[in-house]
Amino acid sequence: MTAELVLEDVHVDYGGVAALKGVSLSVREGELVCLLGANGAGKSTTLRTISGLVRPRRGEVRFAGERLQALSPYQIVARGIVHCPEGRHIFGGLTVQENLMLGAVQRRDAAGVRRDLDWVLALFPDLAQRLKQRGATLSGGQQQMLAIARALMARPRILLLDEPSLGLAPVVVQTIFRVIRDLHRQGTTILLVEQNARQALAIADRGYVLESGRIVSSGTRAELEADVQIEKAYLGA
């Protein structure tokens, strides 16, 4: 069974206001898929639905053939779907090391956890020097790196990244995107939500474009880049 993530006709509403109106998409093993769209299009809601933080009113979310919407968030993490939320949500009062270990909170293989700790610290050398520092004392870029590193500590089969470039300096954005591309090359499956459409598309295999809760366009990187409408709407002509 390949570990494919499938959303089928997913409807979500927040207190009567429809956020997703029938979203269908899929992410196959090893792919980097990006989800583009303006503010309020439903990108984050899509990720939150996959990770179980919100429940769909209708439709289905399946991973490797299993329906996810009956599971609790921690059970979904146990299936290997790890959500790196928008706004980073690191634990400010805890040290960098404690933050990272919390990513591995469900894992029982101590040796593997230690190996992965070395691995993520090699990905983000900035963090290696700050293991004992509290999360709140990190810069915005370092916090984003910590959030991604923490998600990786869970050894995800699919990594859901929500706006990793939000509010970061251009140089840091470059670093983050380079790491995402490297992770993809190393075989991590990634569903990436971004407003920074041009850069996201540049490293993605495929993409979907969301507009007020519906998918209005999808295709490979080349197809999306060639699409004039998208060019106008999201990439800036």
């Binding site: 919390l102 909170v105 998600a151």
Partner: peptide, 24 residues
Amino acid sequence: SPIGRAMLAVREDPVAARGAGVDI
């Protein structure tokens, strides 16, 4: 212990704790 770290995570940020896979 790991359960203690989970407890701290719940106090610090329940949303992130759930995202990290903590059974709150």
